[in-house]
Design a protein around this nucleic acid. Sequence first.
DNA 1: GGCCAAACGGGACTCTCGTTCCATTAATTC
DNA 2: GAATTAATGGAACGAGAGTCCCGTTTGGCC
Lengths: 207, 207
Amino acid sequence: MERESRLAGTVRPGGRTAKVRAAVLQATQDELVERGFDGLGMDQVAARAGVGKTTVYRRWGTAARLVTDLMTELAEQSAPPPDTGGIDDALRANALSVLGAVNDPRLGATFQAVIAAATCNEEAATALRAFYTRRIAEWAEVVDAAVGRGELPEGTDGPELIRAVSAPLYYRLVVTREPVDEVVAERAAARALAAARAGAFIGAPGG
Amino acid sequence: MERESRLAGTVRPGGRTAKVRAAVLQATQDELVERGFDGLGMDQVAARAGVGKTTVYRRWGTAARLVTDLMTELAEQSAPPPDTGGIDDALRANALSVLGAVNDPRLGATFQAVIAAATCNEEAATALRAFYTRRIAEWAEVVDAAVGRGELPEGTDGPELIRAVSAPLYYRLVVTREPVDEVVAERAAARALAAARAGAFIGAPGG
DNA sequence: GGCCAAACGGGACTCTCGTTCCATTAATTC
DNA sequence: GAATTAATGGAACGAGAGTCCCGTTTGGCC
């Protein structure tokens, strides 16, 4: 059953409603760190936030929506890519920023939760895709600039190259569940760069 | 609460127990295709399999275990890598075999379910990791053979190269949820190969 | 074929999750 | 600051998932 909820776009911003939202999202993240996504109960979130469970159900409805709202909140706080330095530094910076996010206790737990929510909830999946589309587009500009400076072959597909940097990291995180450290991150950046320099990213229609 | 269940290693193989297991796993896969992992109910699986729900709870306990058992069953039916042809054909074959699995209606739904189960269940995660560890090791032998024939630089890390081929596919499947087709698969293989030829896979301690 | 152990099946039971109702509190408007 | 509207909170309710009990069926073994 679909429930009309405003989430971010509240009718009366600033005031009790905003306080409730902040408290609930905070409590959600705390619970994710301690119990993970499958252990996330609306009851416990409400109790932890000092809020009635009716309110949580009314405004979010499901655990997946709770996590989705938390992600969009955190997404607005992330830093933009740098526009200085060579492309090798930029790709390394990209890999390391992913690394920093997934290895941070709070962010990492949230990350895992969002991916878990996306695997069984279409709305969460859409939000996750939108987040990465924007993030990839931002970093792709850095690639375009590098192409303009002659650091990479003409026609190099920026979004594809950025995806190629983070793909190995997420593959380890989600599929094989191997630990991800600086060595893995830097190698991912180096390998993508090597393929790009060899012209392997030329001619792909961007997404 | 932990429940002792045998799953694959049944005390009395062949007979009623085996029939029940086959029927339940079949029903599980059918339900996954129709409803996905989050819509998987033990009741419905039991009913569909023509089996008492008590039996399903007794032997599997949770939906995650059901899916895990299904995966280990399917894992034993998968084809080994070819040992003929050049490394470029082999990597392409690897990417296309992943593609075939995730795009097959039944296998694809099961795949998604296993990953979903792994994100919120440690046992499923362990089974998934074990599956990929074995799969990667099998294909890494093909890489080693290519190194022996001089097709790739000495010291190329086989497991890492194989991971690099499938990583972009799973990244799309799980994280960005973009469609995965032959073009994407072949590009993934080509890019990994380009990086390998450039020596970007030399010197990584294998996993 | 008869005995025993193990697995299965049905039904009742409990408990958790999610919903509904309504009184209360806070924010906006005049 | 009084009226109005929207959001909150508590409590009771109902549905569904998971558990338990015990009688029945099946397969192994002599």
